[in-house]
Protein backbone atom coordinates (compact mmCIF):
# COMPACT_ATOMS: atom_id res chain seq x y z
CA UNK A 1 0.00 0.00 0.00
CA UNK A 2 2.72 2.48 1.01
CA UNK A 3 4.87 1.60 -1.96
CA UNK A 4 1.91 2.05 -4.26
CA UNK A 5 1.15 5.44 -2.72
CA UNK A 6 4.60 6.74 -3.24
CA UNK A 7 4.63 5.58 -6.84
CA UNK A 8 1.35 7.34 -7.50
CA UNK A 9 2.58 10.42 -5.75
CA UNK A 10 5.94 10.63 -7.51
CA UNK A 11 4.19 9.98 -10.79
CA UNK A 12 1.94 12.92 -10.13
CA UNK A 13 4.60 15.19 -8.74
CA UNK A 14 4.86 17.04 -12.02
CA UNK A 15 1.08 17.64 -12.29
CA UNK A 16 -0.81 20.36 -10.48
CA UNK A 17 -2.14 19.88 -6.97
CA UNK A 18 -5.75 19.52 -8.14
CA UNK A 19 -5.36 15.97 -9.51
CA UNK A 20 -3.64 14.98 -6.33
CA UNK A 21 -6.53 16.28 -4.32
CA UNK A 22 -9.14 14.37 -6.37
CA UNK A 23 -7.12 11.22 -5.94
CA UNK A 24 -7.01 11.81 -2.20
CA UNK A 25 -10.76 12.39 -2.10
CA UNK A 26 -11.31 9.26 -4.15
CA UNK A 27 -9.08 7.32 -1.77
CA UNK A 28 -10.86 8.43 1.35
CA UNK A 29 -14.23 7.73 -0.32
CA UNK A 30 -13.06 4.21 -1.12
CA UNK A 31 -11.86 3.83 2.45
CA UNK A 32 -15.20 5.02 3.73
CA UNK A 33 -17.04 2.55 1.47
CA UNK A 34 -14.84 -0.32 2.66
CA UNK A 35 -15.42 0.51 6.32
CA UNK A 36 -19.13 0.99 5.69
CA UNK A 37 -19.27 -2.49 4.15
CA UNK A 38 -17.34 -4.07 7.04
CA UNK A 39 -19.56 -2.40 9.62
CA UNK A 40 -22.70 -3.41 7.72
CA UNK A 41 -21.65 -7.08 7.74
CA UNK A 42 -20.65 -6.88 11.41
CA UNK A 43 -24.04 -5.36 12.14
CA UNK A 44 -25.77 -8.26 10.35
CA UNK A 45 -23.76 -10.70 12.44
CA UNK A 46 -24.68 -9.10 15.74
CA UNK A 47 -28.24 -7.93 15.09
CA UNK A 48 -29.92 -11.34 15.66
CA UNK A 49 -28.20 -11.60 19.04
CA UNK A 50 -29.22 -8.09 20.01
CA UNK A 51 -32.78 -8.78 18.90
CA UNK A 52 -32.76 -12.02 20.90
CA UNK A 53 -31.74 -10.25 24.10
CA UNK A 54 -34.18 -7.40 23.68
CA UNK A 55 -37.10 -9.63 22.76
CA UNK A 56 -36.49 -12.00 25.67
CA UNK A 57 -37.33 -9.17 28.07
CA UNK A 58 -40.80 -8.38 26.70
CA UNK A 59 -44.27 -9.83 27.27
CA UNK A 60 -45.71 -12.12 24.59
CA UNK A 61 -48.36 -9.60 23.61
CA UNK A 62 -45.68 -6.99 22.85
CA UNK A 63 -43.47 -9.48 21.01
CA UNK A 64 -46.38 -10.37 18.72
CA UNK A 65 -47.38 -6.78 17.97
CA UNK A 66 -44.39 -4.47 17.97
CA UNK A 67 -40.87 -4.10 16.64
CA UNK A 68 -38.82 -4.15 19.81
CA UNK A 69 -35.65 -2.11 19.91
CA UNK A 70 -34.99 -1.51 23.61
CA UNK A 71 -34.99 -3.95 26.54
CA UNK A 72 -38.23 -4.39 28.50
CA UNK A 73 -39.00 -5.57 32.00
CA UNK A 74 -40.58 -8.98 31.53
CA UNK A 75 -37.39 -11.07 31.48
CA UNK A 76 -37.97 -12.58 34.93
CA UNK A 77 -41.58 -13.46 34.10
CA UNK A 78 -40.55 -15.19 30.88
CA UNK A 79 -37.75 -16.93 32.72
CA UNK A 80 -40.12 -18.26 35.38
CA UNK A 81 -42.47 -19.75 32.77
CA UNK A 82 -39.50 -21.37 31.05
CA UNK A 83 -38.04 -23.06 34.12
CA UNK A 84 -41.50 -24.21 35.25
CA UNK A 85 -41.53 -26.67 32.34
CA UNK A 86 -37.92 -27.09 31.21
CA UNK A 87 -35.06 -27.78 33.66
CA UNK A 88 -32.76 -25.57 31.62
CA UNK A 89 -30.04 -25.20 34.27
CA UNK A 90 -29.99 -28.94 34.69
CA UNK A 91 -29.42 -29.10 30.93
CA UNK A 92 -26.66 -26.56 31.33
CA UNK A 93 -24.96 -28.65 34.02
CA UNK A 94 -25.41 -31.80 31.90
CA UNK A 95 -23.78 -30.09 28.94
CA UNK A 96 -20.85 -28.98 31.07
CA UNK A 97 -20.39 -32.49 32.46
CA UNK A 98 -20.57 -34.14 29.02
CA UNK A 99 -18.39 -31.53 27.37
CA UNK A 100 -15.66 -31.45 30.02
CA UNK A 101 -15.35 -35.22 30.38
CA UNK A 102 -15.41 -35.75 26.60
CA UNK A 103 -12.82 -33.05 26.03
CA UNK A 104 -10.48 -34.43 28.70
CA UNK A 105 -10.73 -37.98 27.29
CA UNK A 106 -10.34 -36.76 23.74
CA UNK A 107 -7.26 -34.64 24.53
CA UNK A 108 -5.52 -37.32 26.57
CA UNK A 109 -5.99 -40.13 24.05
CA UNK A 110 -5.34 -37.89 21.04
CA UNK A 111 -2.04 -36.80 22.56
CA UNK A 112 -1.16 -40.38 23.51
CA UNK A 113 -1.89 -41.79 20.06
CA UNK A 114 -0.37 -38.79 18.27
CA UNK A 115 2.78 -39.32 20.33
CA UNK A 116 2.67 -43.07 19.60
CA UNK A 117 2.52 -42.34 15.87
CA UNK A 118 5.18 -39.64 16.00
CA UNK A 119 8.02 -40.99 18.14
CA UNK A 120 7.96 -44.77 17.82
CA UNK A 121 8.65 -47.14 14.97
CA UNK A 122 6.81 -50.42 14.76
CA UNK A 123 5.50 -52.68 12.08
CA UNK A 124 2.39 -51.43 10.34
CA UNK A 125 2.61 -47.92 11.81
CA UNK A 126 2.07 -46.15 8.50
CA UNK A 127 -0.86 -48.34 7.55
CA UNK A 128 -2.47 -47.71 10.94
CA UNK A 129 -1.98 -43.98 10.55
CA UNK A 130 -3.55 -44.04 7.09
CA UNK A 131 -6.48 -45.94 8.63
CA UNK A 132 -6.92 -43.16 11.20
CA UNK A 133 -6.93 -40.55 8.43
CA UNK A 134 -9.37 -42.67 6.43
CA UNK A 135 -11.90 -42.69 9.26
CA UNK A 136 -12.08 -38.90 9.03
CA UNK A 137 -13.80 -39.26 5.63
CA UNK A 138 -16.75 -41.24 7.02
CA UNK A 139 -19.87 -39.09 7.44
CA UNK A 140 -21.02 -39.02 11.07
CA UNK A 141 -24.54 -40.35 10.58
CA UNK A 142 -23.62 -43.41 8.47
CA UNK A 143 -23.71 -45.81 11.41
CA UNK A 144 -26.28 -43.99 13.52
CA UNK A 145 -29.00 -46.68 13.29
CA UNK A 146 -26.57 -49.48 14.15
CA UNK A 147 -25.16 -47.29 16.92
CA UNK A 148 -28.61 -46.87 18.41
CA UNK A 149 -29.38 -50.61 18.22
CA UNK A 150 -25.95 -51.58 19.56
CA UNK A 151 -26.24 -49.21 22.53
CA UNK A 152 -29.65 -50.76 23.15
CA UNK A 153 -28.00 -54.21 23.26
CA UNK A 154 -25.32 -52.90 25.65
CA UNK A 155 -28.06 -51.40 27.88
CA UNK A 156 -26.40 -48.05 27.38
CA UNK A 157 -29.44 -46.15 26.08
CA UNK A 158 -30.37 -43.22 28.29
CA UNK A 159 -26.84 -43.10 29.77
CA UNK A 160 -23.86 -40.84 29.05
CA UNK A 161 -21.51 -43.66 28.00
CA UNK A 162 -22.40 -43.62 24.27
CA UNK A 163 -21.92 -39.85 24.24
CA UNK A 164 -18.68 -39.58 26.20
CA UNK A 165 -16.71 -42.77 25.41
CA UNK A 166 -16.49 -42.29 21.60
CA UNK A 167 -14.49 -39.11 22.31
CA UNK A 168 -11.49 -41.41 22.84
CA UNK A 169 -11.39 -41.99 19.09
CA UNK A 170 -10.84 -38.50 17.72
CA UNK A 171 -9.14 -38.97 14.35
CA UNK A 172 -8.59 -35.29 13.71
CA UNK A 173 -7.14 -34.91 17.21
CA UNK A 174 -4.60 -37.68 16.55
CA UNK A 175 -3.64 -36.15 13.21
CA UNK A 176 -3.21 -32.74 14.86
CA UNK A 177 -1.24 -34.06 17.85
CA UNK A 178 1.06 -36.13 15.63
CA UNK A 179 1.99 -32.97 13.71
CA UNK A 180 2.59 -31.18 17.01
CA UNK A 181 4.77 -34.03 18.38
CA UNK A 182 6.76 -34.07 15.14
CA UNK A 183 7.51 -30.38 15.44
CA UNK A 184 7.74 -29.61 19.15
CA UNK A 185 9.01 -32.74 20.97
CA UNK A 186 12.79 -33.17 20.63
CA UNK A 187 13.78 -36.86 20.68
CA UNK A 188 16.77 -36.03 22.94
CA UNK A 189 14.40 -35.21 25.80
CA UNK A 190 12.84 -38.67 25.52
CA UNK A 191 16.30 -40.28 25.48
CA UNK A 192 17.34 -38.36 28.58
CA UNK A 193 14.15 -39.49 30.31
CA UNK A 194 14.99 -43.09 29.42
CA UNK A 195 18.53 -42.74 30.75
CA UNK A 196 17.02 -41.46 34.02
CA UNK A 197 15.09 -44.71 34.14
CA UNK A 198 11.58 -43.38 33.47
CA UNK A 199 9.00 -45.80 32.07
CA UNK A 200 7.49 -44.95 28.69
CA UNK A 201 4.14 -43.87 30.13
CA UNK A 202 5.88 -41.75 32.75
CA UNK A 203 7.91 -40.04 30.01
CA UNK A 204 4.66 -39.26 28.26
CA UNK A 205 3.05 -37.84 31.40
CA UNK A 206 6.04 -35.97 32.79
CA UNK A 207 7.88 -34.78 29.69
CA UNK A 208 5.64 -34.92 26.63
CA UNK A 209 2.28 -33.69 27.94
CA UNK A 210 3.69 -30.45 29.46
CA UNK A 211 5.46 -29.67 26.18
CA UNK A 212 2.22 -30.24 24.27
CA UNK A 213 0.17 -27.89 26.46
CA UNK A 214 -0.21 -25.02 23.95
CA UNK A 215 -1.40 -27.39 21.19
CA UNK A 216 -3.66 -29.18 23.67
CA UNK A 217 -5.25 -25.83 24.50
CA UNK A 218 -6.00 -25.17 20.83
CA UNK A 219 -7.36 -28.66 20.21
CA UNK A 220 -9.25 -28.51 23.51
CA UNK A 221 -11.10 -25.33 22.56
CA UNK A 222 -12.32 -26.90 19.31
CA UNK A 223 -13.30 -30.23 20.91
CA UNK A 224 -15.11 -28.26 23.58
CA UNK A 225 -17.12 -26.20 21.07
CA UNK A 226 -17.91 -29.27 18.97
CA UNK A 227 -19.17 -31.25 21.94
CA UNK A 228 -21.06 -28.29 23.38
CA UNK A 229 -23.06 -28.01 20.16
CA UNK A 230 -23.53 -31.78 19.68
CA UNK A 231 -27.17 -32.55 19.00
CA UNK A 232 -28.13 -35.68 17.01
CA UNK A 233 -26.47 -38.35 19.19
CA UNK A 234 -27.72 -37.04 22.58
CA UNK A 235 -31.18 -36.53 21.08
CA UNK A 236 -31.57 -40.17 20.06
CA UNK A 237 -29.70 -41.71 23.02
CA UNK A 238 -31.17 -39.77 25.97
CA UNK A 239 -34.91 -39.96 26.70
CA UNK A 240 -34.92 -38.55 30.21
CA UNK A 241 -35.46 -34.81 30.45
CA UNK A 242 -33.15 -34.68 33.41
CA UNK A 243 -30.24 -36.13 31.43
CA UNK A 244 -30.50 -34.07 28.25
CA UNK A 245 -27.91 -31.45 27.32
CA UNK A 246 -28.74 -27.86 26.41
CA UNK A 247 -29.16 -28.19 22.60
CA UNK A 248 -31.69 -31.01 23.03
CA UNK A 249 -33.56 -28.93 25.60
CA UNK A 250 -33.63 -25.94 23.26
CA UNK A 251 -35.16 -28.16 20.57
CA UNK A 252 -37.69 -29.32 23.15
CA UNK A 253 -38.46 -25.74 24.16
CA UNK A 254 -39.36 -25.05 20.53
CA UNK A 255 -41.87 -27.89 20.34
CA UNK A 256 -43.37 -27.30 23.80
CA UNK A 257 -43.70 -23.51 23.86
CA UNK A 258 -45.23 -23.12 20.42
CA UNK A 259 -46.71 -19.69 21.19
CA UNK A 260 -44.82 -18.61 24.28
CA UNK A 261 -42.19 -16.54 22.47
CA UNK A 262 -40.89 -14.82 25.57
CA UNK A 263 -39.98 -18.11 27.25
CA UNK A 264 -38.41 -19.43 24.04
CA UNK A 265 -36.26 -16.33 23.67
CA UNK A 266 -35.08 -16.69 27.27
CA UNK A 267 -34.03 -20.26 26.48
CA UNK A 268 -32.10 -19.05 23.45
CA UNK A 269 -30.40 -16.34 25.52
CA UNK A 270 -29.33 -18.88 28.13
CA UNK A 271 -27.86 -21.03 25.35
CA UNK A 272 -25.99 -18.22 23.58
CA UNK A 273 -24.64 -16.05 26.43
CA UNK A 274 -22.10 -18.62 27.76
CA UNK A 275 -20.75 -19.07 24.23
CA UNK A 276 -20.48 -15.31 23.85
CA UNK A 277 -18.53 -14.99 27.12
CA UNK A 278 -16.32 -17.95 26.26
CA UNK A 279 -15.60 -16.50 22.83
CA UNK A 280 -14.78 -13.02 24.10
CA UNK A 281 -12.16 -14.56 26.41
CA UNK A 282 -10.47 -16.91 23.95
CA UNK A 283 -11.29 -15.35 20.57
CA UNK A 284 -7.60 -14.71 19.74
CA UNK A 285 -6.69 -18.34 20.41
CA UNK A 286 -9.71 -19.61 18.44
CA UNK A 287 -9.02 -17.43 15.41
CA UNK A 288 -5.32 -18.29 15.31
CA UNK A 289 -6.31 -21.95 15.73
CA UNK A 290 -8.63 -21.84 12.70
CA UNK A 291 -5.95 -20.08 10.68
CA UNK A 292 -3.29 -22.62 11.68
CA UNK A 293 -5.65 -25.50 10.88
CA UNK A 294 -6.42 -23.98 7.48
CA UNK A 295 -2.73 -23.68 6.61
CA UNK A 296 -2.18 -27.37 7.35
CA UNK A 297 -5.16 -28.41 5.25
Amino acid sequence: MKANNSIVETGLAGNNGKTKKTINVKKSLAKFAVYFFLILVAFTCLLPFYSMMVTSSHANSDIARKLLLVPGREFVENYKRLIDTVPIWRGFANTIFITVSSTVLSLYFSALAGYGFSKYNYKGKNILFMAVLGTMMIPGQLGIIGFFKLMDTFNMLNTYWPIILPSISNAFGIFFMKQMCDSSIPTEILESGRIDGCGELKIFHRLVLPLLMPSLATLGIFSFIGKWNDFLTPMIILFDNELQPLPVMIAMVKSQFSTDFGAMYVGIVISVIPILIFFSIVSKKIISGVTAGALKG
Binding site: G146, F147, P166
Partner: peptide
Amino acid sequence: FGFYFVVPYFITFLIFGLTPIIYS
Protein backbone atom coordinates in the same frame (compact mmCIF):
# COMPACT_ATOMS: atom_id res chain seq x y z
CA PHE B 1 4.85 -48.92 23.39
CA GLY B 2 4.00 -46.76 20.41
CA PHE B 3 1.65 -49.50 19.34
CA TYR B 4 0.08 -49.72 22.81
CA PHE B 5 -0.48 -45.96 22.74
CA VAL B 6 -2.56 -46.07 19.55
CA VAL B 7 -4.54 -49.15 20.60
CA PRO B 8 -7.20 -47.26 22.66
CA TYR B 9 -8.15 -45.32 19.54
CA PHE B 10 -8.69 -48.46 17.50
CA ILE B 11 -10.60 -50.32 20.19
CA THR B 12 -12.95 -47.37 20.71
CA PHE B 13 -13.39 -46.86 16.99
CA LEU B 14 -14.09 -50.56 16.55
CA ILE B 15 -16.84 -50.51 19.19
CA PHE B 16 -18.47 -47.14 18.63
CA GLY B 17 -17.60 -46.50 14.99
CA LEU B 18 -16.99 -49.53 12.81
CA THR B 19 -19.37 -52.04 14.40
CA PRO B 20 -22.37 -49.66 14.17
CA ILE B 21 -21.51 -48.97 10.52
CA ILE B 22 -21.43 -52.69 9.65
CA TYR B 23 -24.47 -53.33 11.80
CA SER B 24 -26.32 -50.57 9.91
